[in-house]
Write a protein that binds this DNA or RNA. Structure first.
Length: 102
DNA sequence: ACCTTGACTAGAT
DNA sequence: AATCTAGCCAAGG
């Protein structure tokens, strides 16, 4: 009997290093369910409020936050990432060490 | 058991 | 580069 996909997803997300980000698809693949990017979002969605999981380090394949721009959730995730040194370029975000034109 | 919805994505247009 | 489309996993009606 293996753990539930949900538990494997929690496991993977908890291992994303501070200051770095991963896509829903990458998390799913790492959890052993490569076709379930969508499931990752659904799992994170129902996290308890006090959860210590770094859910904010998960963005979509376009390296963007998957919330409507300006929404409370969007702003919160953006704020948490900024606090970890993740660089933003308006709607697009990129990891520090990745080159990006100004 | 069937249909819809969602913090998604790769591929086609 | 911007849109559309079809496919995927799980939960809820």
């Amino acid at each position: 009997m293996s753990q539930s996909n949900q538990q494997r997803i929690w496991q993977v997300v908890s291992q994303i290093p501070k200051g770095k980000i991963a896509s829903y698809g990458q998390v799913a693949a790492q959890a052993g369910i490569p076709q379930a990017a969508r499931l990752v979002g659904n799992v994170l969605r129902k996290l308890p409020e006090g959860s210590k999981l770094p859910w904010h380090r998960v963005v979509n394949s376009q390296r963007k936050i998957s919330f409507p721009i300006g929404s409370p959730a969007y702003q919160e995730q953006r704020q948490r990432l900024l606090a970890e040194g993740v660089v933003f370029n308006k709607e697009t975000i990129a990891i520090n060490h990745l080159a990006w034109s100004s």
